[in-house]
Design a protein around this nucleic acid. Structure first.
Length: 584
RNA sequence: GGGCUCGUAGUGAAGUGGUUAUCACGCCUCCCUGUCACGGAGGAGAUCACCGGUUCAAAUCCGGCCGGGCCCGCCA
């Protein structure tokens, strides 16, 4: 009878068979111990010289040989039990041993403290996946999928798969293109998201849709961003005109993933809503980590007439002066402060002014420019105490928020303020619909053009386009954007106007979003939805800082699959079929 | 596209100008009947990523180049 390691303790006295890999071999000359590993755990095998054939084979065993071992399960004598492993109370006395397959010495070590580099792990991912941590990861991922599906199905959502071979979308990320063989010179594209399909499903009468959807984007990766493909819980609901309905529906899922699934603690039972403007002003980011404080403090009014030119000039030219109080920062060395200054400069700051509060006094190169009452106000408003440092940003409001927002994260890292057991969630709402593109200095979409502008046509036709707010919302988890959604624009007239604001005419919209705009003319219900980034959620909930750790076969940081050697060159004949004549 | 950083036996690390490049794990040979990261004795294994330069002398300093990682740009 073949059983698994997890069952072996219940089979004392039975003759059983275990199949698995050799985890370790301890050869005592006249007695050999083998730890055999299957996907459920480890069991100790004992091979004695009396079983000569098995013993001879056991002497040949090396790490990761695949074996089948049969014999009697027996309880170990008390002093031989190993409390450190779950099967440590028993062992299998082997009568019959079969080597199912041999293994060369491994190119990476799977056990012990020396972890191979990520590049080698990815090259030999099929070996890396044998590590218990990776096995657990794959199981956790599957469990998350099941929990998500159970949750959605229980709420009357229908999973619909949408095309993988889709069409290029003019907005957003760079597409992966697929040349058409049948239609020379034309291309399919892998979808960046099922956005348009799911909206068309709403028109198609699928009242509640969801999908664990593969999304494809050809953009440079990051530690928290996979190259190429990633997975979203994509969902959409008909007859929803208030985004709060989507937020309220999805919150219990995320909360239960945090608590029941990951065993982590929510910072607060209620998930706060912050407007985009509020989030930028208080945290300098649209994805703030709420596990720690250090909020940005507005000091423009208080320092408008100070003697420090950097401050007053920023305010005079329409900018802002804000501060961040870092508790205990007086312990920072001069060179550490310099490195934070470098970060601030990299984000666009001219420098990094600061006040060092110590011994009831203020120490700082800029203190002499400030009046005692100004120093007192700064101390009061920032809540600075002895041992704290208050850092300043003085520039345009955008730069100040960006700089201090980045520093806030850096200080949290430096002072280890990110409690890995706490999960802080927040909804960021009311994103600006339009923004000024830095490069072109022209008005452009701030986010996607599919969400409903709050105020509709009236707002779109108003004079202040930058104040138009999209009915759009992101969920943020510990400083990571894990969800983006919105109340969609289902009204053709409003849709044309949304593009019209940027100078695009009807023909432009019809050419690029023809199916959508066409469908909206035939009784499109109002609808809203969102999409959660599953990989990123899994990363944060499993305490990883690299998203590739939660994926079985990820591309590396250069977009290469070092195991399969993709991308790769293809046969000239293949290219010819696809009407591709030259490849540089 | 840009910035920072790393590259030393199969793996992980040490080595900031000077004998034969060090250690651990792994590998090979031998010994060992209660180990569980078994133990003991011995051994093999490195063009110090690559190319060039400085120097009496380079793993080490300089330049270039290739590759990895992180970040910026980018990611509706």
């Amino acid at each position: 009878m073949r059983i698994l390691s997890s069952e072996v303790t219940t089979h004392v006295g039975d003759t059983i068979t275990l199949k698995g890999w050799v985890q370790s071999r301890r050869d005592h000359g006249g007695l050999i111990f083998i730890d055999i590993r299957d996907h459920q755990g480890i069991t100790q095998l004992v091979i004695q010289p009396e079983t000569a054939e098995a013993f001879a084979l056991a002497e040949q065993l090396r790490d990761e040989f695949v074996i089948s071992a049969s014999g009697l399960v027996r309880e170990r004598e008390q002093h031989l039990k190993n409390p450190n492993i779950t099967t440590g109370g028993v062992e299998l006395k082997v009568d019959d041993l079969v080597i199912l397959n041999r293994s060369e010495p491994l190119p990476i070590q799977l056990h012990g403290e020396a972890m191979a580099s990520e590049d080698l792990r990815l090259k030999y991912r099929y070996l890396d996946l044998r590590r218990p941590k990776m096995q657990t990861m794959l199981k956790k991922r599957a469990e998350a999928y099941k929990r998500i599906r159970d949750f959605m199905e229980a709420r009357d959502f229908t999973e619909v798969t949408t095309p993988i071979i889709a069409n290029s979308s003019p907005e957003g990320a760079r597409d992966f293109l697929i040349p058409s063989r049948i239609h020379p010179g034309t291309f399919y594209a892998l979808p960046q998201a099922p956005q348009q399909f799911k909206q068309l499903l709403m028109v198609g009468g699928v009242a509640r849709y969801y999908q664990l959807a593969a999304c494809f984007r050809d953009e440079d990766p990051r530690a928290d961003r996979l190259y190429g493909e990633f997975y979203q819980l994509d969902l959409e609901m008909s007859f929803v005109e208030d985004g709060e309905e989507v937020r309220a529906l999805t919150e219990p899922l995320i909360k239960s993933l945090v608590t029941d699934f990951a065993g982590k603690q929510l910072l607060s039972a209620d998930i706060p809503r912050l407007t985009y403007v509020e989030s930028m002003e208080r945290y300098g980011s649209d994805k703030p980590d709420l596990r720690y404080g250090m909020e940005l403090i507005e000091l423009s009014d208080e320092l408008a007439t100070s003697g420090f030119g950097v401050f007053t000039n920023a305010i005079k030219s329409g900018g802002a002066v804000k501060a961040i109080c870092v508790p205990g920062a007086a312990s920072l060395s001069r060179s550490q402060i310099d490195s934070f200054t470098d970060i601030a400069k990299a984000e666009g700051a001219g420098g990094l002014a600061y006040l060092n509060f110590a011994d009831g006094d203020v120490k700082s190169p800029i203190a002499k420019f400030l009046q005692p009452d100004e120093l007192a106000t700064i101390k009061l408003k920032t809540g600075a105490a002895d041992g704290d440092i208050v850092f300043f940003g003085a520039d345009t409001r955008t730069v100040v928020n960006k700089v201090l927002g980045r520093l806030r994260v850096e200080f949290a890292n430096h002072f280890k303020l990110k409690d890995p057991n706490i999960i802080a969630l927040a909804w960021i709402i009311d994103f600006p619909f339009y923004e000024i593109d830095e490069a072109t200095q022209k008005l452009d979409f701030s986010h996607n053009p599919f969400s409903m502008p709050k105020g509709g046509l009236t707002a779109l036709r108003g004079t202040d386009k930058l104040s138009i707010v999209a009915d759009q919302y992101d969920m943020v988890m510990n400083g990571y954007e894990i969800c983006s959604g919105g109340v969609r624009n289902h009204n053709p007239e409003v849709m044309y106007e949304v593009f019209g604001v940027l100078g695009y005419d009807k023909a432009y919209v019809d050419a690029r979003f023809g199916a959508m705009i066409g469908a909206f003319k035939y009784g499109a219900p109002p609808h809203a939805g969102c999409a959660f980034g599953i990989d990123r959620i899994l990363m944060e909930l499993t305490g990883e800082t690299n998203i590739r750790e939660v994926v079985a076969f990820p591309k590396n940081g250069s977009g290469v699959d070092v195991m399969m050697s993709s991308p790769s060159v293809v046969e000239a004949a293949q290219l010819k079929e696809l009407h591709i004549e030259t490849v540089e």
